[in-house]
Design a protein around this nucleic acid. Sequence first.
DNA 1: ACTCTGACCCAAA
DNA 2: ATTTGGGCCAGAG
Length: 122
Amino acid sequence: MSRLRAPSHTTPRAPVRAHSDPDPILQRIYATIDSIPRGCIATYGQIAREAHLPGRARLVGRVLRELPSGSELAWHRVINASGRISVTGESARAQRRLLAREGVCTDARGRISLARFGWRAD
DNA sequence: ACTCTGACCCAAA
DNA sequence: ATTTGGGCCAGAG
């Protein structure tokens, strides 16, 4: 069970719920994703920038990959910069289903229109 | 202390 | 549209 940024010389913390994790970087990423409105999507890079972590889109991806089970974070509202879903297999179907439930649809080629559904932060 | 691998991104070719 | 090369950085082996 891997942990984010756990110092090797300390015992890993017990798992905590997403919104109570004390790591400020995680807090900012979670908070930013939380502010994506229902029916909108944002890109990994956009989340990184909004969370004051410019250029760290991959970090956002890792954070979502390691999302604690039971988290209520709207992970499905995050897609890549080319308008595609980045997860594969079962997760991709789940993401498409969750988005469809919010009215976010993919085109014939599996792409989501950033122009139509992209979140523009204030 | 390496190298490899990513839920990534962007400019250039 | 696709490829390439560079940036990013934490885990895993």
